[in-house]
Every structure is written in C-alpha cells, then in structure tokens.
Design a binder for these strands. Structure first.
Lengths: 137, 137
DNA sequence: TTTATTTACTTGTTAAAAGCAAGTAACATT
DNA sequence: AATGTTACTTGCTTTTAACAAGTAAATAAA
C-alpha cells in the first residue's frame, strides 16, 4: 500500500486519498465509464497489474470511496459501486476533463463537449451523477 | 522520473501530467501559497526530499506548467512561476478543496469558506488567479 | 459427474521510484 | 579570506510498482 501523509491542508488530504495515478483511473472506470467488475477494471487501456488493482480496491473500500457486494446472478463476481464520497469527486473529474481537453494535443474531448461542460456546468454535473441516483430510497 | 502512460482519455492525460502526489503539492505552494523559491518548497509540511523536488521542478518545466528565471536581486535564486497551463488548474484545486472540506474530519477549511467557494464560484476563481494577472501585458 | 473455464484474487520475484544522507559549486555576506 | 546561502547532484537504502505464476471458489461444458 502506498505511503500517505496528511498535514491538515485540503490538498494534502486529497493527495493522501487519491494521490497516485491508479485511484483516479479506477474512479473514472466506475463513475464515467460505469464499469463495476474486477475484470472490467483489468481491461483498462493503461494496463493495471492485478495485485495493484486488488490493493487499490481494498484501499478505496477502506476509505469508503467504494462498496462491494456479491452479484446474485453470478456468485463469483463482486459488484463495485461508488459511495457519495466518490460521487462528490465528479466536479473534480469534470474540471480535469476540461483542463485536459484544453491542453492535451491528442485529446478525444471535442470542443463541443468542453463548451457544454463549461457553460452548462450544473446540468453536466447532474447528468454525470444521475445513473447512480436510483440507488437512493 | 515517474512513469507516464497517456492513452488519449482526459483522465489519463491528467494522471500523466500530475498523477503523483508531489506535483499537486508543488502547484499548491506556487498557486495557493504564493511561494516561488526552491527553499520555500523544501519547507512544505509534507517533507519533500531535495532530489524529488529538483526532479519534479524539471518535469513541470518540461511540461510547461512552470517557468523559472533568475532573481535579479540575488543571483543564486531562481524564481519559479506558474504558466497559464498551471493557472488553468485552479478550478481543479478549488474542487479538491471543497471535497476535502467536506470529507476530511480534521480539515482546516471552514464551512464559511466552502459556502463561499460553492456559491460564488466564479468570483473565487477570479480571486485565486488575480495575483498572477499583473504579469500580463 | 468429472473436467474445463471463469472470476477474483494471492504470492514471489524483479524493476523502478522514493526517501535519506552527504557532497558540491556558484554566489553572497562578514 | 573565510563562512554561509542557495540550488542543486550523487550514492545508497527502502518502499512501491510491475510482471509472472499459482490458487480457490463458482459456474459451464462434455
């Protein structure tokens, strides 16, 4: 498990929570791509190692960024789901996407998307969150 | 230097740019705390090693997140300054601060600050950027 | 119903990165 | 001229990540 030092500053807390590249990429899988299974995470383009994935999922569960439950239709599978704590990172993810859209010369983000994100921010945030709202009572 | 793999996705680009804890903490020093010198960065509470700091500053310069120039008043010193590419990460930093303010039990961020950030977002973003605008022609 | 396959890991080893301590070189101060 | 400051570099140790192989439980196929 990675080393974590939190000094009380909000950025320090953020970096102690997900200050490695994999945690954000796993959150992308769950929140933006709607993946929920271990083998789906394993297939991400960046190529995560199985021991690192297992380690990060445990850490994220410990941090209460995700929960996991058995898939009743296939008892071998776990379903990984984001908590509200993770979903509250959607604004961070959105700003990362806007920034990358502006500065990545090989970005896949279209100018139309960036404009939509920037100019209809509240709506975009709601839309990103919507697929996870059905869980609520 | 840290390994970087960018697959075209905006989050992948973000993580390839600053997907380690130190780069964001150095950006905090420069953008939020207005530090500009090597020895000031060395004094950050998280305790960065001198070789890692030197490595990251080089990488950030290469990425055009910062520039450096000699201090004319003390020729030993370099002045490190953020580029527009770095300043455009202010919205990301702001969202990190809001999230940490909500979830860090030992946060130093007050509820009043979070409310100000959330409800007067555009104004807050402008204020964070203002100290760096004087450089413009 | 044994046999193979899927799923989610664990374990062991190697490679890379971070952390630590000491040293250096240019400039500045006393 | 000697001492201190500033921004590093270099060498070594420790930690983390990456790679490869193996395992165990659940399911599917023969």
């Amino acid at each position: 498990m990675m080393y974590k030092k939190n000094t009380g500053c909000p950025f320090s807390f953020s970096m102690a929570s997900f200050g490695d590249k994999w945690t954000i990429l796993i959150l992308r899988e769950i929140i933006a791509i709607h993946h929920r299974y271990y083998d789906e995470f394993m297939q991400m383009a960046e190529g995560i190692s199985t021991n690192i994935l297992a380690d990060r999922l445990k850490d994220m569960e410990k941090q209460k960024l995700i929960t996991r439950r058995r898939d009743t239709k296939n008892k071998r599978r776990w379903i990984y789901e984001p908590t509200d704590k993770a979903l509250d990172l959607i604004p961070v993810l959105l700003e990362l996407a806007i920034w990358s859209g502006k500065y990545d010369p090989d970005t896949g983000v279209t100018q139309a998307h960036i404009e939509a994100y920037t100019q209809r921010r509240a709506k975009t945030l709601k839309e990103w969150r919507k697929p996870f709202e059905s869980r609520k009572p």
